[in-house]
Computed example of a mutant assay.
Amino acid sequence: MQSFLILLVLALLASSCGFRKYVWFISLGYGAAIALVCIGLLVIFGGSLTVGTALQCVLLVVYGCRLAGYLLYRDMKTAYNRRMKGEVKSDEGVSVVAKVGIWVSASLLYVLQTSPVLFRLADGKGTDVLCVVGLVISATGLVLETTADLQKNRAKKANPKRFVDTGLFRLVRCPNYFGEMVFWTGVFVSGLSVYANAVQWICAILGYLGIIYVMFGGARRLEIRQDKNYGDDPEYRRYKSTTPIMIPFVPLYSVKEHTWLVA
């Protein structure tokens, strides 16, 4: 419990950047919180790390730093900010109470997401088959997510006014979100041999389902934005109707009407 609270404090510190810019609670602050939480794990359990658990922590630090760095770079680009003006909710009208609520709930989610690694380290379980399997799945997700971001940047530089349907985007319309889900699936799977009681199961499941919900909410926002920008383009309509939105080969083509996806 003490370790959990320490990690929550670290997540709160890292994501507090959202008080400067509201959306940073769930973007820049998200990546920074994951990285800082896992640096905390390395420090707290430094004397009992195995190869597998050390790699888990390092992979999560790399994941968080990559995400935070990419989002910060993107946020600093004048062209991106101009394109997203009016599309992203501003700080106007968001009360301090609402900001604190988002800050605390988001930080708690970030700790829950990483809880499978915490439970493994706290229970001294070391490296087992599921730890290795989870590492492979998470590494695959990180590669997918990074590749998708690079391909989108390259495509937008070549043709800023066109939607992206090249590379991984041929298989799924949100490959970066898909990669994110794969990454956290690996983290959850890695703990299947560790969860020792109902509390640990609940924490791990809430963290996993929470990030899946956030990803589908992000896909819904993206679909609404793309429909607004490209809805009159026959090529976009054809692309949308034939390419799954989130998971390759799963015929789910739209989440726009699912208003419960409000993340």
Rank of each mutant, 00 (worst) to 15 (best):
M1A: 13
M1R: 07
F4S: 06
L7W: 04
L8W: 07
S15Q: 06
C17D: 06
C17T: 10
K21R: 14
W24R: 02
I26T: 05
I26M: 08
S27R: 01
S27G: 04
L28A: 13
G29I: 01
Y30Q: 11
G31W: 04
A33G: 10
I34F: 03
L36T: 11
I39K: 01
G40P: 12
G40F: 11
L42F: 14
G47W: 08
G52C: 07
A54N: 10
A54H: 11
A54G: 15
L55Q: 04
L55M: 09
Q56K: 08
Q56M: 12
C57W: 03
L59S: 09
V62L: 15
C65M: 13
L67I: 00
A68E: 06
A68G: 12
G69V: 02
L71G: 08
L72D: 00
L72K: 11
Y73I: 05
R74T: 04
D75I: 09
M76Y: 04
K77T: 01
T78K: 08
R82T: 14
M84L: 11
M84D: 11
E87C: 06
E87H: 06
V88I: 15
V88M: 09
D91R: 01
E92W: 00
G93L: 02
A98Y: 00
K99R: 12
K99L: 06
I102S: 10
Y110R: 01
T114D: 12
P116I: 04
P116Q: 03
L118N: 10
F119P: 15
R120D: 14
D128E: 09
V129G: 04
C131I: 01
V132K: 05
V132W: 13
V133L: 12
V136K: 03
V136W: 10
A139G: 11
T140W: 08
T140A: 08
L144I: 15
T146M: 08
T146F: 14
T147C: 09
D149W: 14
L150D: 13
Q151H: 07
Q151D: 12
R154H: 13
R154P: 11
K157A: 07
P160S: 00
R162I: 00
V164H: 05
D165E: 13
T166Q: 06
T166I: 09
F169M: 02
L171Y: 04
L171F: 03
C174S: 15
P175C: 03
Y177P: 13
G179D: 12
G179A: 09
F183M: 14
W184Q: 14
W184N: 15
T185E: 03
F188K: 07
S190M: 07
G191N: 05
S193G: 12
N197G: 14
A198L: 08
A198Q: 07
W201M: 14
C203R: 01
C203T: 03
C203Y: 06
A204M: 05
G207F: 03
L209Y: 05
L209V: 15
G210D: 09
G210I: 00
I211C: 11
I212V: 15
Y213G: 10
G218S: 11
G218P: 13
A219I: 02
R220P: 14
R220Q: 08
L222R: 00
L222N: 03
E223T: 01
R225D: 05
R225C: 03
Q226E: 09
Q226I: 01
Y230F: 04
D233L: 00
P234K: 00
E235I: 00
E235H: 00
Y236N: 10
Y236W: 09
Y239G: 15
T242M: 09
P248T: 00
P248H: 03
F249Y: 08
L252I: 13
L252M: 08
H258K: 05
H258F: 10
